[in-house]
Structure formats: structure tokens, C-alpha cells
Design a protein around this nucleic acid. Structure first.
Lengths: 162, 162
DNA sequence: CGTATAAATGCAATTTTGTTGCAGAAAGCG
DNA sequence: CGCTTTCTGCAACAAAATTGCATTTATACG
């Protein structure tokens, strides 16, 4: 038709990207509205969204909550350095970090650290207790370095879609 | 009624927190479904959600996109250290960082760094170009340290709701 | 080059979900 | 106590999402 369509494969065309662009900002945008934006019908938009969800392009649809409004006002960054590089110990650490609700994000990285964590807590004593559980309680953690966030300048999980 | 209600203030009761808990996971959950979970009527749930949106407790409703599925597969962490501490220069830096779509998150922190950025790019040359624009192009940036993410162990913006 | 096949689309009907008006119940307050 | 405010549920309503179906478009292939 007008745009380059996609066949059996997982390809996303310009219209799909535009849909994602909208949904990344506000996934409550009516399909009709999106349809008008990209000159498609609502059902077409709906099918594309469904397809992208099935394909995992869209991983989840979530509400973003302001931590401060629920009294979870302290954001922390932690660089964690591990002692041993044994795979099983890494996996155990990953599971441990992932399981903690205070750990909002956890990345395994290269460089001077092994993991980088983003943590949200209500109070510093809460953080202290968490470090005891996650780091001191894990004797494969060699050391960790904490940064305290003073301002959340930009927060989101939007992926750039050129 | 059954639960501790809220009056003029911004207080969130147990039911509000439960609603947030659901919406943080899947904001497409029908209000009727949530209503059943917490033993309320759908309109009651709808009003609570509306109120929390107006109050800013719910900041946004978004779709989470898998970066890899749109060929944006490199996640980077950058600790940025600034030269001068003059407020206006900080503000300028914040604006510059925030304006870049590749910068997914930006936090102003205490400690050995001033800013921590989470960046998503398609290729390393893209990152190189970005550093030139954001860091080398800003002569108030003293130095920056990059970590490359090898695995996104846990990614989200969920706030712990005890 | 035309024909067969697969894929995507639009429209209209249907279903599901969200929204609103209103009367009644619960909680705070003088 | 009785008044006021705030919620709530129910039922009607509006809006949005979803489905079936015929048609158009694109790709593959003879």
C-alpha cells in the first residue's frame, strides 16, 4: 500500500515505529487517535499493537508512579564489585538482587564494576538494612560504592526510535 | 467503609496502594478486574485512579519497549564529573542531557560523580558521537566514566509499595 | 508478465471497558 | 446529635476495543 509493509518476518515498518513512539509516551491514547495520526484504520492499529505485544517488542504496559508521592523518596545507585567470577555465584547474585523489590533496576556491566543497581527506599536506615542483606550477607561481594540521587533529572524507559 | 478512607488530603489508603500495585505491573487491567480484587465497584476504582493521576501519584501510562527489538541494543552507564559547580552550568548540563533522546535516564547525584546517565544507542560509533556532543562539546565536563551493560538483569520503574 | 498465495486493510457490527448521574451510607466535625 | 463532606454502588450511557468479512495490495512463482 502506501507504506512498506512487513511479511512473515519481525520487521517493523515506519508505521509500527510511529505507534511505538506514541505508546511509549501514553499507552492510553485511543487507537482511533493513533489511526488518524498515521492514516490507518483503528483495527489496523489494533492488530499492529497486538502483533508487537506478541512479538515482545512491547514488553509491558505500566503506570509510572512517583516515588515521592508514596514516601519512597530516596533513589540510590550502587556499583557492585564481585569477588569471584564463577558463573554460579553471579547467577545467585542476580537472583538475589532481582528478588528485592527495592531494586528497581539491575544491570550486569563491564568495567570497574560488575553490577549496577538502582535502588529505591524510604529511609537511609532502610537502605542500610538492605545493604546488609544484599551485600554484606553475600560474601562474594568484594565491595560496593553508593551514590545518592539528589534529583531525578530525567526518568523513563523510552527507547529512542529514529 | 471497610477500609480507612481518605479525606481532603493526599493520603493513599491500602486500596489505593493495591491499585497502584496492579497498575505498575499492567495498566491495561480492566477496572472491573481490579474492583473484584479489592472488593470495590468499578466506578470506585475508576475515581481513585483518576484522583491519583490528578495528584501526580501516577505520572504516566506507558508501553515498555524492548530496545533489542528495535535494534537499540547497547545500554551504557556514564558517571559524569563536572568542572565548575556553578548552578547555571549545572542547569545547562541538565537541559542538554535531558534533551537527548538517547539519554533514557539522568540523575544528579552526590559522591564522586555529579551526574549518572543511562544511555541507549544502536552502535558504539553512535555512542562516540553522542559523547562528543554531550561531553566533549561541554567544556564544563571534567571527565566521565562509562560502563557497558552486558545484561539487563532487571529493568523497570516500579516503586516498592509496602 | 500474469496468476496464485499470503498478508494487511477498511468497514460495520459486536463486545468490552470506561464514565457519569444520582441516591444512599460512612466518617469527620461542631 | 445533626450537619457536612466524602465515598460508595447501581444503573444508564458513552467510548473504546475487538471481530468477521469482503477487498485491496504485495510478494512469490510459474
Amino acid at each position: 500500500m502506501t507504506e512498506k509493509p512487513k511479511h512473515g518476518s519481525a520487521e517493523l515498518d515506519r508505521l509500527d515505529l510511529k505507534i511505538l513512539d506514541v505508546l511509549q509516551r501514553d499507552n492510553k491514547t485511543p487507537q482511533r487517535t493513533i489511526a488518524e495520526m498515521i492514516h490507518l484504520s483503528a483495527p489496523a492499529v489494533q492488530r499492529r499493537i497486538k502483533r508487537m505485544e506478541e512479538f515482545g517488542v512491547i514488553q509491558a504496559n505500566v503506570a509510572l508512579v512517583d516515588p515521592a508521592k508514596v514516601d519512597q523518596s530516596i533513589t540510590l545507585f550502587v556499583e557492585v564489585e564481585m569477588e569471584s567470577e564463577r558463573a554460579e555465584l553471579y547467577e545467585a547474585a542476580k537472583r538475589s538482587f532481582s528478588a528485592a523489590p527495592e531494586v528497581q533496576q539491575c544491570y550486569y556491566v563491564t568495567g570497574e564494576a560488575d553490577f549496577i543497581l538502582i535502588i529505591i527506599v524510604r529511609t537511609m536506615p532502610d537502605y542500610e538494612a538492605l545493604t546488609r542483606k544484599l551485600f554484606f550477607g553475600n560474601n562474594n561481594v568484594k565491595r560496593f560504592r553508593t551514590f545518592v540521587s539528589m534529583e531525578r533529572v530525567k526518568v523513563g524507559l523510552s527507547v529512542p526510535l529514529e
